[in-house]
């Protein structure tokens, strides 16, 4: 199943940690946001293959903006 990872709050994109095509596990950090004077990691909930990274470092994201799109991995 595909996973849409969206911003939970207004923030600056500080670091993009993964790239398109990478395989991530549940709980892995995808990007790190900077908001409320904190570095806030954005994690994958289910894990999968990164199909799209919708932000670049330095971007400002609003609540609800798409950050990344993950494809589910085929069952082993």
């Amino acid at each position: 199943m595909a996973e849409e990872v969206r911003a939970e709050m207004v923030a600056n994109v500080w670091k993009v940690v993964v790239g398109v095509g990478d395989t991530v596990s549940a709980g892995d950090t995808l990007v790190i946001l900077d908001s409320m004077k904190m570095e806030i990691p954005v994690l994958s909930e289910d894990g999968g293959r990164v199909a799209q990274i919708a932000v670049r470092e330095g971007d400002v994201v609003q609540e609800g903006d798409l950050i990344a799109l993950l494809d589910g991995l085929p069952a082993a």
């Binding site: 939970e8 709050m9 908001s35 409320m36 904190m38 806030i40 990691p41 994690l43």
Partner: peptide, 8 residues
């Protein structure tokens, strides 16, 4: 929980 919305 700081991980979510910075814990705000």
């Amino acid at each position: 929980n700081p991980l979510r919305r910075g814990g705000c």
